[in-house]
Design a protein around this nucleic acid. Sequence first.
DNA 1: CAGAGGTTGATCCT
DNA 2: AGGATCAACCTCTG
Length: 575
Amino acid sequence: MASGSNSLVWFRKGIRIHDNPALEYAAKGSSYLYPVFVIDPRYMEPDPTAFSPGSARAGVNRIRFLLESLADLDSSLRKLGSRLLVLKGEPGEVLFRCLKEWDIKRLCFEYDTEPYYQALDIKVKNYASAAGIEVFSPVSHTLFNPADIIQKFPSLSDDMYGCFDETSEKNSGRPPSSYQSFLKIAGQPSWASSALLTTITSLPPVGNVENCGISNVPTLQELGYEESGQDELTPFRGGESEALKRLRGAMDDKEWVAKFEKPKGDPSAFLRPATTVLSPYLKFGCLSSRYFYQCIQDVQKNVKSHTLPPVSLLGQLLWRDFFYTAAFGTPNFDRMNGNRICKQIPWNADDELLAAWRDARTGFPWIDAIMVQLQKWGWMHHLARHCVACFLTRGDLFVHWEKGRDVFERLLIDSDWAINNGNWLWLSCSSFFYQYNRIYSPISFGKKYDPNGDYIRYFLPILKDMPKEYIYEPWTAPLSIQTKAKCIIGKDYPKPDHESPYDLQVHEWLMTQFDKIVVSHDTASKECKNKLAEAYELNKTRNGAVNEEDLKILRRKFEENQSQEPKSKRLKNKS
DNA sequence: CAGAGGTTGATCCT
DNA sequence: AGGATCAACCTCTG
């Protein structure tokens, strides 16, 4: 490109100034630079029919986080002599209009591996090349280029059998299916010991943008959302400035960084979370994962000893790349059907169970408190996510992981297509992880970290006066205690009734008859284990070719087993 | 094809 | 707090 012409940098993720190759390249030698963000109504427009405040695809917490991130980007750009140009509409159409209107010769945007952008970006690139516009689309969202990893990974079908199927021809490798093999292929990132940061001191000016429908970064209200109370909204503020502040805060405690062991974190810690809470900033690219990587490396160089992947802090960033690689290299990664790495399992399609889980009324306080934190904060600890995901799918309710995935995808401020789907595959024992006998107890897991139940008391204030002896299993509290705690189970707080619609009197009677609880996690989890064993068996005999009919037959069998042992009979057997 | 290992289970035991 | 045991899956390695 001849220097002295116009460039456009298109922000999607990568909402930052630091370590932003697309921005740097766009700025180099241009007379005018147009920094653009397109507000896609499909993602941002209020949808009153959704189950929570927000658009059709995103809860209001994440929309707000995005707007804050954009406002921060705009303010940073202004300090460099530029500004953010916000436009509304279908991104492709808006972009084509801008390219024409402003006579753009160079278009720069961060490469994105998600299916949505893969499809959109092909259109954009085709348009640009037909119009003689240079396109620069660097990989800067992840540590590695997922395509490189897949290329390097020896394809099973090529190596062992020397045959070529359609997939191996197109794609010489498949993504590694375990973290360890991923680490081995990935190695050190090429840039690990080189300087990433070129400090930008000024940017080319923005050209004439009159009559182009440019606006400032809108507020939630300007987008048509109603004002809501502070305590209904996430405590985490969006933006690059906030990300770097948070990063600095974490890195300052060198001991903590060096000793970080993810599985040892306390999921019930909420006043001071046990992790960095940098995930939402990584999701939107307010924080560069590569810069984060280098910061951790710096700390590790200066301490005597440190933890290692998979549990270390660096290991967490590598998990992110692991899931990005798996997601990029697996067709239909976000579905069970047609997903070659996903076990085919006849999950329930029970919308009532799903709604009880989603709306925090399962009757298990540990589970419900986590779901309230999800709705209010849009963030909860990784292990808390494990508990509710396990409970919904393979642990207790046997509801399809795709349903839970949808709820997380909407409500999490850090929801990330690759990572969210990857973790649901993991937790439901559909892929990556297969030890389905390891089930999180909705009662004892939380108790181990928080015996007093402070986390439950905070997010489920109705239970705030329940004595700690009963707070994880309030249905076991004698009625006198429930009365004193101003929380009658079955009236003020649900009893776990997804299996047993008993009235309170029967419930009370049962409490005198059994030392075990009425709706037993024990019973539900045992049934789930049996179902998973049968489903695994089916997958084995069908050798990865389970069809709709197979699943239907097995689903019918599960239903028959359940009706053979009705609730009343089950109780009589016990008494 | 056997054996080792797998980020984060629960329970009981010391 | 840490270890053994439970029951037992899959993937990777040699």
